[in-house]
């Protein structure tokens, strides 16, 4: 009996947005009298940082600093319809809606600035830090603060825009299953290294090295947080979690965190992340949805690493010490038979 090491690999892809589309999201954008911008949505921030990403998308599109954008969301009295935050759709669907709304608002803003500067709107650009200037002549400029004031009090114009994004729904052909499930796919490859104790069946994940291709990392730090969290969830799914450990037996169901097994801080593997960007054709700045995918490849990678270590397959999740031990005993019984 000994502790054996092994490593395993898995590679996956994942569709962005609701399967078969048909899942709309809308956004509204408007400026305040002094040139701050408000994004109004009904999308939900689950803690993954949707509000921050929408602010950055709006800021980039209008050409203002992110801190001048406020996101008001998840209130059905003010926010236009969003299908919801699930299916790796938040960034992709809401992001596209915000871009469309922000473009419309930017156009009005430039038109007002053009009147103030007595030039054509098409000759204007933003500097990203709160000013609008004539292209090639940075000294001929007006601040967005003054532009918004002029729009409100002088020109009677609303610097605002409406945005809507909808992937048309696809209906599967009944006999062949011909369909369009998604417009873009994220990708991942994980290599996991494990140690398996042949005496106890216990598996320790030593490291996971994850590569994710996500279209565009709109905010790399927040991407990193989500990918690390997802990676830990994948390990947790692989080795620990179930509400009914002896499914289909309904006994032994966990009722709290004392009974529901999950890895604690000491059980977490060394985690390495690399991110590739192949911009999607229809994503906001090329972004895809990695939210769900990032918890998937670790599960088979860990299972394959266990086989590499001790030569047994556990094809039922979660891969508990009990299941590993039973498989090892079967292996040894087979060897001596």
């Amino acid at each position: 009996m000994a502790v054996k090491r092994g490593r395993g690999v898995a590679a996956v892809n994942y569709p962005t947005g609701m399967n078969l589309g048909g899942d709309p999201t809308q956004a509204l954008v408007h400026s305040t009298p002094t040139g701050s911008f408000m994004v109004t949505l009904s999308s939900v921030d689950l803690g993954q940082g949707l509000k921050q990403i929408m602010a950055q998308i709006c800021a980039e599109t209008i050409g203002v600093p992110t801190e001048s954008v406020t996101v008001d969301t998840a209130d059905t009295d003010t926010g236009p319809h969003c299908m919801g935050t699930f299916a790796s759709r938040g960034t992709h669907r809401a992001g596209n809606a915000v871009i469309q709304a922000a473009r419309e608002a930017r156009q009005v803003m430039l038109e007002v600035a053009a009147e103030e500067l007595e030039v054509n709107a098409s000759d204007l650009d933003t500097d990203g830090s709160g000013n609008i200037h004539v292209k090639g002549a940075p000294s001929r400029s007006i601040s967005i603060f003054d532009t918004a004031l002029a729009a409100h009090f002088k020109h009677g114009r609303s610097i605002s825009g409406r945005g809507m994004f909808l992937v048309p729904r696809s209906y599967p052909e009944t006999e062949t299953g011909a369909m369009k499930p998604s417009t873009c796919y994220a990708h991942a490859c994980t290599v996991a290294e494990v140690e398996v104790d042949e005496e106890t069946g216990e598996v320790v994940v030593l490291s996971v090295k994850n590569v994710f291709e996500i279209g565009r990392a709109l905010n790399p730090k927040m991407v990193e947080q989500q990918l690390i969290g997802g990676s830990w969830m994948g390990i947790s799914h692989a080795l620990y979690e179930t509400t009914e450990p002896y499914y289909p037996d309904r006994e032994h169901g966990a009722r709290d965190y004392n009974e529901y097994l999950m890895p604690g801080p000491g059980d977490l593997a060394e985690t390495e992340i690399a991110v590739l960007e192949r911009p999607s054709g229809d994503g906001p700045f090329g972004a895809k949805g990695p939210g769900e995918m990032c918890a998937n490849p670790q599960i088979p990678a860990v299972a394959n690493a266990i086989f590499d270590a001790v030569g047994v397959r556990v094809d039922t999740l979660p891969i508990t010490p009990e299941r590993v031990l039973r498989a090892l005993r079967q292996r040894d019984a087979g060897a001596t038979a």
Binding site: Q52, Q56, A59, T66, V71, L218, P220, K221, M222
Partner: peptide
């Protein structure tokens, strides 16, 4: 060539 996109800004909340 973006100014806001791709920036590791801390989340607002």
């Amino acid at each position: 060539d973006f100014t806001e996109i791709g920036q590791p800004r801390p989340r607002s909340d």
